[in-house]
Design a protein around this nucleic acid. Structure first.
Lengths: 189, 189
DNA sequence: GCCAAAACTTAATCAAGTTCAAGAAAAGAC
DNA sequence: GTCTTTTCTTGAACTTGATTAAGTTTTGGC
């Protein structure tokens, strides 16, 4: 759990008292492989800080197949902010790709914490800025590069990742079919 | 400028004093057609609330052509948060598509305001949440729908918009060539 | 260690969208 | 109002990636 405090401290300053308050408000949770933190149509009740493991956020598209829009890894928060904050049913599933550990920040507790510790509201503003920029960057990759180029870019950026998660998930995240990914790999081996 | 106060008040509560402080810290600015609020490689110095008009945020891709990543319209903020906050050169251009009016919030003033009015930091956290969700939604559209479907969706959602901005900008925003857009339009007329 | 389920590969066919090139129409400048 | 620049259109050849369907390999449960 100290990893969370360390992460927050990278963005804002916390007093020792702040740290204790935060730690007392946050739950530690182990998550089994394939377990869900959130399912479609449910209202999201917490923001999750990933201490260890990998999550995928996906939805079911018009044709009925799973589309991954986001991977959550160590030291990132994962949630559906839209559902969490506006108390509306989520369009997304959040599922553990492998065994994981998370710090759970319940939405009601979050509101209280923001009042007690304004620095925390600032921290989340900064985190969201980062997430928003990353999302823009992602749109750039989709527009600028072909599927093959995106795959090479991804595999250079996160080589260990490719070993840990099934290929069909990578294909879904990068926006093409598993068959096409197979073809790309066949070319270069 | 009252439109800005009204917008903030939709998300957080402001006292009369807060409102005065905000108004005293914000500059009104008219922007001519094709004028830039930000250019690539410059460090972004302000967040702009669009009172009236349309802006496009774009970058130059590998092949040297302009790629529009975002349209800013009435009642939205437009800036490069990454450059603004981290004081790094921007990758983007922000340009007025038509004559516009904006409220300018300088980054240094913003920091001061957050200290004086914590509700404002909350407001921006909520705004960013909304922008992030919209960006996710955009990725969904790109993945789920064909170019033609995206065009019809866009033209149903913002019919007046199509009249106001050149087609090649719409094509760029939707992620295909102007030639292809021409073909789509030819089909249905 | 065996069986079932999950994940990956291969190949043929097809659709969506790009590229290039040329010309037509519309919008601004003075 | 005409001249220039910007925007839009059309068509042919081509590329990327989807689809379908079958077969192969790997993984996990018990």
């Amino acid at each position: 759990m100290q990893r969370l405090i360390a992460h927050i401290s990278k963005f804002v300053e916390l007093t020792e008292e702040d740290k204790e308050i935060i730690l007392s408000c946050i739950q530690y949770q182990e998550v089994k492989k394939k377990e869900y933190l959130l399912r479609q149509d449910a209202i999201c009740n917490a923001n999750y800080f990933i201490l260890k493991g990998v999550f995928r956020k996906y939805y079911i598209d018009e044709k009925g197949s799973e589309q991954i829009i986001h991977f959550g890894i160590d030291n990132w928060w994962i949630t559906d902010y839209d559902s969490l904050d506006r108390r509306i049913p989520s369009q997304y599933f959040i599922q553990a790709v492998e065994r994981a550990e998370v710090a759970v920040l319940d939405w009601r507790v979050q509101e209280e914490l923001f009042v007690k510790i304004p620095a925390l509201e600032r921290y989340f503003r900064l985190i969201l800025q980062r997430a928003y920029a990353a999302s823009m960057q992602r749109i750039r990759y989709i527009y600028d590069f072909s599927g093959e180029e995106r795959y090479y870019h991804f595999s250079n950026l996160y080589p260990e990742f490719l070993q840990r998660i099934p290929q069909y998930m990578v294909a879904s995240y990068l926006g093409f079919t598993p068959e096409f990914l197979s073809k790309i790999r066949a070319k270069k081996i």
